[in-house]
Amino acid sequence: MWDKKRAYRFIVLMGVVSLFADFTYEGAKGIIGPYLAFLGASALWVSLVSGLAELLGYWVRLLSGFLSDKLRSYWAFTLSGYALNLFAVPLLSLAGSWQTASLLLLLERTGKGLRTPSRDTLLSKATQVVGHGKGFGLHEFLDQIGAVLGPSVVALVLYLGFGYRLAFALLFVPAVFAMLFLLQAKGLEVKDLQKERRGSEASLGKAFYLYLIASCLVSLGFLQFPLMGFHLTQKLNFEGWQVALFFALAMGVDALSALLFGVLYDRVGFMSLIAGLSIGMFSTLFLLLISQPLLAVVFWGISLGVQESIMRSAVAKLSSEDARGRAYGLFHFFMGLSAFLGGALMGLLYQYSLLFLIVYSVGLHLLAIGLLLAVVKYKAQ
């Protein structure tokens, strides 16, 4: 059985894995587009392959979630997924053409799709001991440190004039550290995994599916940062470096809110999720109507922190152990697909009417909050 000390050690180790993993692929994410252009790809291809890679990752999450439950091979999916996800990035430094680089980008997203449901399932076993909200909040906090450091280091490498290839090659270092810490975490967890309960009912009830719909509504109505950055530069006359600083601020707020609302979730349950989403709902309003970008970015970061911590932790509470891989597969697939579709629709609404975009975003958040209240009521029965 897990004890609290061992559970915290596992959560921290997996958080450090995510720190170095985010350092690797988030560090690369900001320069993939320019690098593909450097290799001769067209703007249309950059857009197409980026969207295709994300969609592929969503489908793989759905499939890997089902298979990990069926095969009871959570570590196999986690290890292979991380390896593919991480080492595809430094291999970009060796790409001789945009076709090869595009293939590596597809492999990187495939790897992330393979490992995400299984990783969250493994995490849920430890967070059950210390509190799902606190555990996932701590993991997200460490994760976001890497999301800030990676792009910052890559930007510095390019600023110093070393070029894209060296920037990608240097990301081999955090990739190796991520795998080393992952192997250490596996050594800590494997004995409990061998003793885990078998034969419990693999079920996902009505509360889970209501929650899944609510989560998708949030994702459909959540303004993506690239569109925020576009608005800041094109409408509010911000410079690129200022947008980058705002993004770093948002990542910092994300990390802190994940911890705060994670602790609150363990104390007051779904009401903390509703509170966090209610705050984040005003981000679009402050950005597009009131023109208070600082508040908009802070509220946006709060909402993202809640989505990345509490919304993941709630899946563990709403699913049985034997169905948890499937639950996380469904959750990540539909959340990702909703973000993709919502982002495209909000881009169209942005061109048509900012007021319609605000009504759309706020309206979907209100519907989601209503469904979450229904989940609370259903669980109380």
Rank of each mutant, 00 (worst) to 15 (best):
L107T: 11
S42L: 06
G240I: 09
A374N: 08
T110C: 06
S320M: 11
L304Q: 09
Q184R: 14
S97V: 13
V190D: 14
G65Q: 10
D120R: 02
G146F: 01
R198S: 12
P226A: 09
M346A: 07
K379H: 06
G252T: 06
K4F: 11
C216L: 08
F246T: 11
G113V: 07
T233K: 15
G137C: 06
S118Q: 05
L295K: 02
L217A: 14
A185Y: 03
K379S: 05
M14F: 04
H332L: 09
V190Q: 15
R267Y: 01
L373K: 13
L91E: 04
R165P: 03
S272K: 05
Q184N: 12
L232F: 14
G336C: 08
L193E: 14
P90Q: 09
S73G: 02
V190G: 11
V253N: 06
P226Y: 14
G65V: 07
F222M: 13
A314R: 09
G161D: 07
S319W: 05
R72P: 00
H132D: 06
E196R: 13
G252Y: 00
Y74M: 03
Y209V: 01
T100W: 15
V306H: 08
P34G: 08
L355V: 15
G187D: 10
R198G: 10
A380F: 01
L103H: 11
K317V: 11
D322Y: 02
S18D: 10
W59A: 14
A368F: 03
G135I: 06
Y8F: 15
N237T: 08
W59D: 04
A255I: 10
K112H: 07
Q99S: 13
V157P: 05
L48T: 13
S200P: 09
K134N: 04
G205S: 09
V49C: 02
K5G: 11
S203A: 10
L84Q: 02
L354Q: 03
E196Q: 15
A21N: 02
E201S: 04
D22A: 03
Q242Y: 02
Y209F: 15
E54A: 10
E189P: 03
L13E: 15
W2D: 01
L84P: 01
V297Y: 05
G111D: 07
D322M: 08
S50V: 00
A327K: 11
Y328T: 04
M281E: 03
L259D: 02
G336V: 04
L227R: 02
K4R: 15
A323V: 06
H365Y: 15
F261G: 04
G336I: 10
Y352D: 13
L264S: 06
A175V: 02
L249S: 01
S272P: 09
L277F: 12
R119W: 00
F333S: 07
L13G: 09
G280P: 07
G205K: 12
L156W: 10
F340Y: 13
R267C: 07
F168V: 03
S93W: 08
F168D: 12
S291V: 11
A323G: 13
V362C: 00
Y25K: 00
L39R: 01
G343L: 04
S18V: 00
M311G: 05
R198E: 14
L318T: 10
L264R: 07
A344Y: 15
N85G: 06
A28Y: 08
P90G: 03
L107K: 00
L345W: 14
W98H: 10
V298E: 05
E201I: 03
A327H: 00
M281K: 10
F331V: 02
S73K: 14
G163P: 14
A374M: 12
A296L: 12
F246H: 01
